[in-house]
Simulated assay, not measured.
Amino acid sequence: MTRSRTHLSLLIALALLMLSSLLAAQQPTAVIGARASLEPWSDPLEALGTLRADESVTLSSTVTALVAEVSFSDGEEVETGQLLLQLNDSEEQADLRSAQALRDERRNTVTRLNQLESRNLAPRADVEDARSRLRQVEAEIQALEARLANYRILAPFSGRVGFRDISVGTLVTPGTDLVTLDKLDTMTLDFGVPEVSLGMLEPGLSLTATSAAFPNASFDGEIASLGTRVDPVNRNLAVRAELANPELRLRPGMLMQVTLQLSPRNAVVMPEAALIPEGQRQFVLVLQGEGETYRVEKREVRIGARREGEVEILEGLAVDDLVVAHGTERVRDGGEARLIGILDGDTSVPDILLQARNESEKDS
């Protein structure tokens, strides 16, 4: 009798175990979903470019003279018209003072002859000759003042000067390099783009650029102009862009990794993990319903470009459609699924799984 009861207990326990397994199998499979969203999208095109200053010049002398004054320091920020160097112009200043004195004398002569002519005491020809000699000396003064300007080296635009490699007393000659000046708040970036992309390029197209010198920073810019010719050797079109450089971190000559944002548009986007490839075709599992339990519908989609973790949907999905992002291998078309969370910009898969686990332990 005892053996029969033991045997019966074992049968009952086995039946309960099978029943609980069957009930568990009948429960909808837990999945994580994601909603298709409308987001800005573009086709990236990468290239290498070289930076140039927006304005750059090496100032030099046009006369032979000694440096009388140096008015800048290494790397100093200067303004338009600021005096950088003064060359010795004492001889030219003396010539100017002599010409100015002669001008005053000839003005007095013209004034006196005008008075005599008004009383018919001087011929008209003498007055005209005096006026002509006055205009001549005034022209000489203008020429001297123009030459004196060559002895003052001024900043043609606002920017940053380079190293100071010249001292007071240095003899400079025409063509002698005195100082470099670069306008660095805006940089020019030159790079080449394959001719096959010419139809997608236009001034104003946005881009980002990165440098090995600043691995955690990116610099935004836009195309300023396109070259007029395609290089017949490498079939590239020269492109010039402008980058803002408010912190003056970028320098002329730097190598930049350029990423162009071609064909900017708004696209329906979903996580790439939701795709189910079957040969050349792509499918997704759409969740239909509300609450926690949803009906699963397998739907074919046509995809476009991809970027890290996301894919562009051209056909098959609409904005706000809910798809299975994780758990696609455990559910089937026409079946049921239990939604335990929806991915978004603030929620990750580990966060959803941890929250579901905590809720399960609380219910138990």
Score class of each variant (00 low, 15 high):
L260E: 02
L287C: 12
D185A: 07
S167Y: 09
T58V: 12
L45R: 10
D165G: 00
Q115N: 05
R160D: 00
G204F: 05
L189E: 05
L85K: 04
D190G: 04
R295L: 15
R281N: 13
T111I: 05
E242M: 12
A149Q: 04
L84Y: 12
G253M: 05
L255Y: 06
S71R: 15
L354F: 12
S132C: 03
T210F: 01
V196W: 00
K298N: 15
V296N: 11
T180P: 11
L96E: 01
A143S: 06
P28R: 13
S364P: 01
R160H: 07
E92W: 00
T80D: 06
D363P: 04
M256Q: 06
V31R: 06
R119D: 02
G304R: 12
Y294T: 13
E105T: 03
S20K: 11
D177S: 07
N114V: 03
Q261V: 02
F219Q: 10
V296F: 10
P277L: 01
S73W: 13
E290P: 08
D74R: 15
R281I: 05
R152H: 10
N358I: 15
D126S: 06
P123T: 00
P277Q: 08
R107S: 00
D190Q: 11
L116I: 05
E242W: 05
T186L: 13
A125M: 10
L205F: 03
S61P: 03
I276H: 06
N114T: 11
D129C: 02
S197V: 04
A15V: 07
L322A: 04
N236T: 08
M187D: 05
R281Y: 06
E117A: 00
E278H: 10
G227L: 04
W41I: 03
S206H: 00
